[in-house]
Design a binder for these strands. Structure first.
Lengths: 127, 127
DNA sequence: TTATATGCAAATGATTTGCGTAGTC
DNA sequence: GACTACGCAAATCATTTGCATATAA
């Protein structure tokens, strides 16, 4: 736990927004003017690996597309990055159950199961 | 609906995988050897705007981070891209309800509500 | 001192865009 | 003829990485 890593963690805990790496860099730079953007990226990765923070968009840098337009859910493999359809009935009553959302306009939702696909599961130690 | 757009759509409908833009480019190129990658990107964007296909990772190109490590759900605004926490109880029984997942190792899940935040809702025509 | 992390800058790689041309209504 | 989409190539921009130095165990 280096000073840089500690400050990144503290600044991120301090806010309820969900900043990008760039924004975190700016926040941290007020306390550590010489920190580099690379260090911020490296530590964000480490902290999210440790489970101390969350990276909100997992998966790699490429976007995936789905020919099935109807809403349905997906499974994402942490091992190989593959994405598969999941036969799980849609959750219809989500929005109604959150009163604070009355000022929002909710269009829909996305649900993603995360884990290891059969192939990747085989290659892993039992957890 | 240009020939290129039609072929992109057809190829994407043909597979159950969830290819990246690059992979779709390769698939389409077998039928339209002179198509450009830019055209593929442009049409994927148009098709997903129309709702004819799905872009699986919405939001911009930047990743967001969350200082709260415990699992919880988020709302994402299609207008300004902001992300906010949602006070929605965790869904615990998701995995059990999908028998086909017994060969998988499910670690968890992500749920994201999508729509317009109060500020962006104001600036929009009623839909 | 031995390993790990940092700062800096350059490299990478997915995506976007400008522009001149081709196809369409 | 006006408009839109295309192919191509260059530009963009978030993220990653190589490397020499600094820090920590």
């Amino acid at each position: 736990m280096t000073p840089q890593r500690r400050v990144i963690l503290e600044e991120l805990k301090k806010v309820t927004s969900h900043p990008t790496a760039d924004e975190i860099y700016e926040m941290v730079r007020r306390r550590l003017p010489h920190i580099s953007l690379g260090t911020v990226y490296r530590n964000l990765e480490i902290l999210s690996q440790c489970g101390m923070i969350q990276k909100l968009e997992p998966g790699g840098t490429q976007k995936h597309f789905d020919g099935m337009a109807e809403n349905h859910y997906h499974f994402r493999c942490l091992g190989c990055g593959c994405i598969e359809d999941v036969s799980l009935g849609l959750l219809h009553d989500l929005e109604a159950s959150v009163p604070e959302l009355d000022k929002y306009e909710i269009i829909g939702h996305r649900l993603e199961l995360i884990g290891y696909c059969p192939d990747c599961k085989k290659g892993r130690k039992p957890s």
